[in-house]
Write a protein that binds this DNA or RNA. Structure first.
Length: 423
RNA sequence: GGAGAGAUGGCAGAGUGGUCGAUUGCGGCGGUCUUGAAAACCGUUGACUGUUAAAGGUCCGGGGGUUCGAAUCCCUCUCUCUCCGCCA
């Protein structure tokens, strides 16, 4: 959530940046500025009336103690006169504040200066490509056929017990998945991220804090009986650990990692692109989250990006890094890098990680602050990234490493799987 | 599922109608003393809003009410804890 004062002080800049994000309701900006003016014009007389009423009320107490009953009664009447005015102004003020809030939550974050213009994924900027794409024989299989051939994943069984998009992992498929999770967590810890294990359901305040709510409500599974949401990503519980917290400057940066299943309704998706592991309602992910000083957040973003790339390199997967264009970026992000691996049998790039700097967009909602050099509270910056999302990694590993003999497990994983081949 | 208790500043814990944004202790910060540290002592220490700076205003779980005046009284919601039951 943007700060009202910032919008008021930087109107033109805000409008210009929102245009890069292809924001469709720029009129909200001026509406907010106008409402803020009204808020101030209401606040001032209200505070004055409150001040006078307070003074009269205090006087009543003093007069009563001195036994001046008549004067006390008079003061009571005086104080009573402010009451109606206060009530009226207060109602107006609350109305204005509510309206500001309603408009404010509709504004996305402002994109960083380096974000390319554009509307669709085609407009994303390819920052770099790394690793050689394997040359597979013409009869190479997509991962869903490999999964069936080697009895690794049972999609039909998942449909039976739950529904489409909830696969059942079996045999070496289950072990490969567990190996990857442990590997990713170990690597994150080596890089300085402290592991946390967090709840998979969150309340409404948490959903709001990281800006899934109110705008992306339909994307989350909701447990109505208890008013809880299944997490779409570990970003939500991990970042919300620091909701309503004022940190010391020397505590920054705070770095956490964690493995969780993620649940996504993904309403409206279907077809070839969601085949197999490409798109699921439930999947596992290791997430890295950093809370950093505003001056350092873009350095931190590069480090997080480098960590993710390091994982892909060690797994021997060809990948590319995209800088998302304004139109393709998430609602709360100021700059996002997407990492995609080359799926050799499907012959397409698959997104396996998304690393974002939210600047103070989330922390403003979270009330996540630190005490700066002047001793004043200041909003911290929040960042997060997948390191990594499991299913598409499994998919590309299966596809890219298929041979006549079977599927070769990357060397770094063997200590975790305890097998070298899936045969 | 049943019964009860509670929600106050970073933490602990006072406060049952007026001078309470809130006693006190711990913790934090600054200082005295010390070669240095500890101890002791002195001082300081909530957030938000507002202003050039003040003043002023709001906040004692959320919302509503009574009153000239509410942390304190009433209603309501939410959450937490304890005991019993069930259970990984």
């Amino acid at each position: 959530m943007l700060q009202v004062n910032y919008i008021v002080d930087n109107r033109d800049h805000v409008l210009e940046r929102l245009a890069v994000k292809n924001f469709k309701q720029p009129e909200l900006v001026d509406e907010i500025i106008w409402l803020d003016h009204r808020r101030r014009r209401t606040q001032m007389p209200l505070n004055l009336a409150e001040s006078q009423a307070n003074a009269e009320a205090k006087k009543v107490g003093e007069l009563m103690r001195e036994g001046k009953k008549g004067e006390a009664e008079e003061a009571k009447l005086n104080a009573g006169r402010y009451k109606e005015e206060i009530k009226k102004l207060n109602e107006t003020l609350e109305e204005i504040e509510k309206e500001i809030q309603e408009k404010l939550v509709l504004l996305p974050n402002l994109p960083h200066a380096s974000v390319p213009n554009g509307l669709t994924p085609e407009d994303n900027e390819v920052v770099l490509e790394n690793g050689a794409k394997p040359n597979l024989p013409a009869d190479a299989l997509p991962h869903w056929e490999l999964a069936a051939k080697y009895n690794l994943i049972d999609f039909e069984l998942g449909v039976k017990i739950t529904g489409a998009g909830f696969p059942v992992y079996k045999n070496k498929g289950a072990k490969l998945q567990r190996a990857l999770i442990n590997y990713f967590i170990d690597e994150a810890e080596k890089a300085g991220y402290k592991e946390v294990s967090v709840p998979l359901m969150v309340n409404e305040a948490s959903g709001f804090g990281t800006s899934q709510l109110p705008d992306k409500e339909g994307q989350m599974y909701f447990v109505g009986l208890d008013n809880l949401y299944l997490i779409p990503t570990a970003e939500v519980p991990i970042t919300n650990l620091y909701r309503d917290v004022i940190l010391k400057a020397d505590e920054l940066p705070i770095r956490n990692c964690g493995h969780t299943p993620c649940f996504r309704r993904e309403a409206g998706s279907y077809g070839a692109h969601v085949r197999g592991l490409n798109r699921l309602h439930q999947f596992d992910k290791v997430e890295i989250v950093t809370i950093g000083h505003p001056d350092e957040s873009y350095d931190i973003l590069e480090k997080m990006s480098a960590h993710v790339q390091g994982l892909l390199q060690k797994l021997g997967l060809p990948y590319r890094v995209l800088r998302l264009c304004g139109g393709d970026m998430g609602f709360g992000s100021a700059l996002t890098y997407d990492m995609e691996t080359w799926s050799a049998a499907q012959k397409r790039w698959l997104e396996v990680s998304s690393v974002s700097n939210f600047e103070s967009f989330q922390s403003n909602r979270l009330k996540l602050r630190f005490r700066n050099a002047e001793g004043k509270t200041q909003l911290a910056h929040t960042l997060n990234g997948s390191a990594l999302a499991l299913p598409r990694i499994v998919a590309t590993l299966l596809e890219n490493n298929q041979t006549e003999k079977g599927i070769k497990i990357p060397e770094v994983l063997v200590p975790y799987t305890n097998f070298e081949w899936i045969e």
